[in-house]
């Protein structure tokens, strides 16, 4: 048994080093002068704020539409359920650039639906809402699957007893199911937000403008080289990791 643990430990160490080393390499390669310079550039700050705002908006929209869907999937059996579950997980396997092309084909300005949305004042290509649309698409599986598992793990009688005590289905959902699944809802939102913050492939196709921080990193890498891209990456990474750590800590504390 000890031999097996030693071998497993060695294998685990290799993968952990592989995952950690790029972060260390990034820190080692950073030039403090360039970081200082980058933090004073207005374009970079605007891109960062845009990324944060769009990721938050997409997560809130996903929460509103994804939570009821997650509940239905967790609690009801119906024809076509397997198909719906596959559709939800599809974005996980679609290449990011393809997501951009798909969204452009569906909601681009030259499509019927895109034209209709435009007449309502909602332009998807190269707009804030284009960024949000891409974020929703790529992060939907993470939120819906996590929340669905949260609802599914609630003992069915916790809801059933509330019903027999006089609560209708809506009241039961709001007062029993949702609070009991709060931890999963929070985790799902966190994962969806983090996934949105990391997206770039789809944005390069559907919403290069206005520039999000990830698009700007790609642009600066191509224009000014690795030094500026690293500086910008470090700013984004520190904000993402700090937010992630704070939220995880809050989650643990509440748990």
């Amino acid at each position: 048994m000890r031999k097996v643990i030693a071998v497993f430990g060695l294998v685990s160490a290799i993968i952990l080093i592989y995952l950690t080393y790029p972060f260390i390499a990034l820190l080692l390669a950073a030039n403090p002068n360039i970081i200082k310079e980058v933090m004073g550039i207005r374009e970079a700050l605007n891109a960062l704020v845009l990324s944060l705002a769009a990721a938050t908006t997409s997560t809130l929209i996903l929460l509103s539409f994804g939570t009821p869907l997650a509940y239905l999937l967790a609690r009801h059996e119906f024809r076509g359920k397997g198909l719906i579950e596959s559709i939800i997980d599809l974005p996980l396997v679609v290449p990011h650039a393809v997501v951009g092309i798909m969204l452009l084909s569906a909601f681009g300005p030259r499509t019927t639906l895109g034209g209709l949305l435009k007449s309502l004042g909602l332009v998807i290509a190269d707009s804030y809402w284009g960024i949000v649309a891409a974020f929703i698409f790529v992060s939907a599986p993470l939120l819906i699957d996590t929340v669905r598992e949260g609802f599914a793990s609630i003992n069915i009688y916790l809801e059933g007893v509330a019903r027999t005590l006089g609560a209708g289905p809506g009241k039961t959902f709001l007062t029993i199911s949702l609070p009991l699944a709060a931890r999963s809802v929070f985790t799902g939102s966190l994962l969806a937000w983090a996934r949105a913050m990391s997206e770039v492939g789809a944005l390069l196709i559907i919403a290069y403008y206005p520039k999000t921080i990830n698009v700007l990193i790609v642009e600066w890498f191509n224009t000014y080289g690795l030094g500026y891209a690293i500086a910008l990456t470090l700013v984004l990474l520190s904000i993402s990791i700090t937010t992630f750590v704070i939220l995880r800590t809050v989650l643990r504390w509440r748990g």
């Binding site: 003992n155 009688y157 916790l158 059933g160 007893v161 509330a162 019903r163 027999t164 005590l165 006089g166 609560a167 209708g168 289905p169 029993i176 009991l180």
Partner: peptide
């Protein structure tokens, strides 16, 4: 539906809301 029957169910695990 259950809420209109006036019968209260007490399951084996009591189902107290945590």
């Amino acid at each position: 539906p259950p809420e209109r029957r006036g019968l209260v169910f007490v399951p084996q695990n009591y189902a107290l809301w945590p």
